Amino acid sequence: MSSSTTPAPLRVGVIGAGRVGAVLAAALRDAGHEVVAAAGESDASRGRIDALLPGTPVRKPSAVARASDLLLLTVPDDMLPNVVTMLAASGALREGQYVAHTSGRHGLAVLGPATALGVRPMALHPAMTFTGTAVDLPRLDGCVFGVTAGDAEREVAARLVADLGGRPMWVPEERRSLYHAGLAHGANHLVTLVSEAMELLSASGADDPAATLRPLLQAALDNALEQGDSALTGPIVRGDVETVRAHLAEVTANAPDTLPSYVALGRATLDRVVTDGRVLPIRAAKIRRVLDAAVAPAALRAPR
């Protein structure tokens, strides 16, 4: 915050020095803020503090809160309500203090016990996956943060996101879970999908499944982000019933754990290309029967 119109550097405390908390605190320190204390109980958390925030005192959560002008709560979603309640009851929070959590799901309501004490609440969720190492710091450049803040905190929230190298996406309180679901479905389920694809390639004899997939996946991702459904290719889009049938037989025989997701995504793909007219309903019905038969109980699959 070097501009004369921006506030002085803040004293930052972080509770939950996990993969996200330690990295964000390190980025804020690089931007000129002072990280005064961190709370982390596990060996992994303490290791991240040593690596990313060297010299930062490790304190109990209430002590971290008392020492900070900006308190980052980077604990798991399900722990957040209890942490906020505990801090509010302990007297560690004060009027005018900024308290920001990094949960994608939660908005400002979860900070209610703190807000009742005069705390200035913010939700700052980075739309990024983290390793908890210095590798993450340059990845924050251009990262979108899902931000929920009141009018009085909006300017400060935007400045903090800018200090982190990101840009804000303003998310209404009532849309936080939907926003987070979109990210989780795209990123977390992508990891599952890619892992299953590598298992299938490995079963086919590929000695380096990742290298085989990388250029294809990178092109597919770029095309999907630019073109949406128009980027879809493959046997379902072409209406190749027998190719889909052959896939399902091989998946069932060699990697049955991947069959449910193959079928589920096949059905979803089919729905999308029927809607836009690329596959005629009669052809789609044949593909759907093949997909349904692959996961039907054995008694229903048996010939009669």
Rank of each mutant, 00 (worst) to 15 (best):
L93N: 03
A65E: 00
T74Q: 01
Q97P: 12
R46V: 13
Q97K: 04
S90F: 10
S42T: 15
H106T: 09
R94Q: 00
D69R: 05
L53Y: 07
M86D: 15
V84E: 00
R66C: 01
A67F: 11
V99G: 01
T56D: 13
N82H: 15
V99K: 01
R94G: 00
S62A: 14
L71N: 01
N82T: 15
S90M: 00
S103Y: 14
L108A: 08
S68D: 06
S45V: 07
A88K: 02
L93D: 02
P76A: 06
V84N: 04
D78V: 13
S90T: 01
T102K: 05
L70E: 07
A63W: 08
M79I: 13
S90K: 01
V83C: 05
D43A: 11
T56S: 14
P81C: 07
E95H: 10
V99E: 01
L70S: 06
V75T: 12
Q97R: 04
V64S: 08
G55N: 04
V75R: 03
L70V: 10
A92T: 06
S68E: 04
S62K: 12
P57Y: 11
D77G: 07
R48D: 08
N82M: 07
L52M: 11
S90W: 14
I49F: 06
G96W: 11
V64A: 07
V83Y: 12
L80E: 05
L93A: 07
M86L: 14
N82S: 14
L52R: 04
A88T: 04
L70Q: 10
R48V: 10
G55W: 08
G91Q: 00
L108E: 02
L80F: 10
R94D: 00
T85F: 13
A65L: 00
A63R: 08
A67S: 15
S103Q: 02
R94E: 00
K60V: 09
T74R: 02
E95S: 14
I49A: 09
D50A: 14
V64Q: 02
L87A: 00
D77N: 03
E95V: 09
L80R: 00
T102N: 09
